[in-house]
Design a protein around this nucleic acid. Sequence first.
DNA 1: ATCATAATTGAAAATTTTTCTGTTTGTATT
DNA 2: AATACAAACAGAAAAATTTTCAATTATGAT
Lengths: 152, 152
Amino acid sequence: MILDAIDKKLLDLLQKDSKRTNKELSNKLNLSVTAVYERIKKLEKEGVISKYVTLVKKEKVEKTFVAFCHIKLVQHTQDYVIKFEKEVANLVEVLECYHISGDYDYLLKVIVKDMDAFREFMVNKLTSINHIGSTHSMFVINEVKHTTAINI
Amino acid sequence: MILDAIDKKLLDLLQKDSKRTNKELSNKLNLSVTAVYERIKKLEKEGVISKYVTLVKKEKVEKTFVAFCHIKLVQHTQDYVIKFEKEVANLVEVLECYHISGDYDYLLKVIVKDMDAFREFMVNKLTSINHIGSTHSMFVINEVKHTTAINI
DNA sequence: ATCATAATTGAAAATTTTTCTGTTTGTATT
DNA sequence: AATACAAACAGAAAAATTTTCAATTATGAT
């Protein structure tokens, strides 16, 4: 699907605030309400828009401790990799998991209540997954920037 | 603000899909539409809900190259830190920036079109910020998990 | 028990989304 | 240039949802 300038502007607005009404959007884009409506429907149908979510402030729900964990596997057989990825994806403390290049195999973003909860997580959940070789954790001191909006 | 079990369930549902109607939610929560409405408004007012956003599939907008960049500053004077953080926050390629513990000072999540765009970004944008000592980049081979929903 | 406060409900009003019909616009073809 | 076709657009009506309102029920403190 080819995105024209209006689609891009529209996506930009929606990425920043999905609660804007079609009327608001139609004003900003100099279009009719229906035109906006149909463009959005098309973007949804084509999968450009994947979902609409509510963002929760972690400070308000006692999940202020954020850590990034590097993980190395002992082996890289298909079996081990598949199993590891499935188990990690099931951990609610892991919001993100990436297979990456470099010294380690994976990078995880973990969010828990505090250092104590993190220790608990490491001991009882993460390192109890088999085939993990080594880990290296980095703690977030301050979140300088965090957006979900891609520049289109 | 104290969150009861209903609030938590509600936040869980909204984090996964903010387009659910109050009627749908009222069914799942065994409440009236207005009760759901009032609870949501309160969560917004108290700042538990920070915003509603649209998520765009990066593959559909030609931003499939994701990298994590470690950055070390040459000095850590207040001035340098403030300036660096401000400049980094202004870069549209940088979706996330964290001040972290460990060997490096910062961890950045960068999203661009391809390796060429990444090189361009490194040379012309990132490393042109003053006071950067060294960088170390890791490239995302595969995104195993990526959610915005915190387990509450 | 009584009071005050907060949460909940159902109905009405206001707003928004969605559908529908017809028009315009752009593009390709002759 | 004229024609045909499809895609995008516009305005109005219908459907659905959000928001307001008044009244009721629960909750906690005195």
